[in-house]
Amino acid sequence: MIQFVNVSKIYNNKVVALRDINIKIEKGEFVFLIGSSGAGKSTFVRLIFKEEEPSRGQILIANRSINRLKKKDVSILRRNIGVVFQDYSLLNDRSVYDNVAFALEVMEYPGKIIRQRVPEVLEMVGLAGKADCLPTQLSGGEQQRAAIARAIVNGPQILLADEPTGNLDPDTAWGIMEILNDINRRGTTVIMATHAVDIVNKMRKRLIALERGEVVRDEERGVYKDEV
């Protein structure tokens, strides 16, 4: 599904964020991307939906290199990838419902489908009762749920989540994890960057550890070990 082939990312010709990465992620997998701050997790995620371009190497999605996609194909690629950010990236001038509907509008879905899909997905993330609230009226966990709802509303095959539990208390974080796990069980490939030790250890999923831009571990059902 997603394959990195000798991928390096060097920012501004000096900061090496990723170095010679070779990784293969299969369809339907749940992958934790762990590492301390500055290890290159966000960069890894951003390369997949082409917010950044690799300096060297190839990224293949569904066995096709995405390096030289035409602009039109970039937007098609992004429609197949849902992205959840740590800062939620919600629009504060419109309701939760409108934030989620916005994604479908932008993808030019017909109104009938929008009116059907948005309540469904809000129900799924447990925000059915908050559809008319503004993001600023929600708790952090609820905002993150809204962001997830927006990311999956069109049923993408891949969901990228960059530290989705970063700002949340443990209970709320577990609620988010349940939703992501649920999404994964329905067949979506989920890649989640995090440094939440207990979550990673309890979930027992595939774990890719980055350190200073290099893959230092790649284990099925891995646990977080803090090497000193």
């Binding site: 939906f49 937007s75 992004r78 429609r79 990236s89 629009l91 916005f102 932008v106 993808m107 030019e108």
Partner: peptide
């Protein structure tokens, strides 16, 4: 700009 950024992210076409 924020709205535009999110639009790009969720796959709005250029002309949209």
């Amino acid at each position: 700009r924020r709205e535009l950024q999110i639009m790009k992210l969720v796959g709005a076409s250029d002309w949209f």
